[in-house]
Design a protein around this nucleic acid. Structure first.
Length: 309
DNA sequence: AAGACGAAAGTGGTTGA
DNA sequence: TCAACAACTTTCGTCTT
């Protein structure tokens, strides 16, 4: 998925300031105004099929797929189930004398589907995974990736002796970073009952065992999310990303916490553009201290010769 | 009164002998 | 294994708007 390439839509205008410069952010599937940051449409994803069907016959003909296969469901969504209506496949009622048999089949079909501790643990893990990712606001493809990582780990017996929740948290953390929508250890820790330290440990373990190599997240990856929480406009957002890029060229980023840099660049941009937020607010949303915001801010403005006043 | 600034001391994790 | 170290945090007093 391409980030940072805003698509400008022409036909619509912002209801707040009437600007026609709207930005579509595919990551959050959110249409917002470049000038004032007003969010016009959220989650405007088209979930329907791309074909049209006017009666059931056409629908049957044009449908090409069933429910999507998903790594986030323990049997990948490909399970069978025996229906609740007592009809056979021709739609006739099943004779009384066979009902008991059908009921037994139903029972066993259910039992077999989630059988053995391995499968059961996986089912628990994946529902936990879904809970955590949805609290973190991660899109579906990231959840799928997290599920894939967890499955691999489970298959390699890496979960044994560790808490399911902890490994799930680490998978989510890894997937988020891998897909350039990083969440901090603090954030993942908040939605799970796992300490930051433990998640970090599990992450390093997972990365080593599965051969996952990740570069540290870029501050620019955090900028859109923080900007949106603070209701800052697209102007501020893109300027902050510019500042991040310039800082990187001058080597001012290495060794600094990405969230701190993201917070500082947003602060600078917000002041320059005149949509000032307080250091306190920005520090809070980036979960860094005000002092860190100040230090980064000072560093960047000095070294980049930015005149803030 | 709220926000910005900076000094000082403390914390947890990494690095290198 | 231990000490040095860099980055960050907390706390607090002072200055600015």
């Amino acid at each position: 998925m391409q980030k940072g390439t805003p698509m400008i839509e022409e036909q619509k205008t912002c209801p707040k300031c009437n600007s026609s410069e709207l930005i579509y952010d595919p990551q959050r599937s959110e249409l917002s105004c470049r000038r004032c940051g007003y969010v016009i449409e959220e989650n405007n994803m088209d979930m329907g099929p791309e074909y049209r069907a006017f009666d059931s016959e056409q629908r049957a003909k044009r449908t090409r797929v069933g429910a999507p296969m998903s790594f986030a469901i323990s049997d990948k969504g490909l399970s069978t189930a025996i229906g609740q209506q007592n009809k056979d496949f021709n739609g006739r009622n099943i004779p009384e004398r066979n009902l008991a048999q059908i009921n037994r089949l139903r029972k066993w079909n259910k039992r077999i589907r989630i059988s053995g501790t391995g499968e059961r643990n996986l089912a628990i893990a994946l529902s936990e995974l879904d809970r955590q990712s949805s609290k973190l606001g991660l899109p579906r493809d990231v959840r799928e990736d997290a599920a894939l990582i967890y499955r691999k780990a489970a298959k390699m017996n890496l979960v044994r002796g560790r808490s399911i929740e902890g490994m799930v948290a680490a998978s989510v953390y890894t997937a988020a970073r891998r897909n350039d929508l990083p969440r901090t250890l603090d954030e993942v820790s908040d939605v799970s009952n796992v300490t930051k330290k433990q998640i970090g440990k599990n992450y390093r373990f997972l990365a080593k065992q599965l051969g996952i190599k990740l570069t540290p997240p870029s501050p620019a990856d955090y900028v859109p999310r923080f900007a949106s929480i603070l209701r800052l406009s697209g102007n501020v957002e893109s300027m902050a990303i510019d500042i991040v890029n310039k800082s990187r060229e001058k080597g001012l980023i290495t060794g600094r916490e990405p969230t701190g840099v993201a917070a500082a660049t947003l602060y600078i941009a917000s002041v320059l553009i005149g949509e000032k937020v307080t250091q306190r607010q920005i520090a809070e949303t980036a979960s860094v201290s005000e002092v860190t915001v100040r230090n980064r801010y000072k560093e960047l403005t000095e070294k980049l010769n930015l005149c803030v006043l």
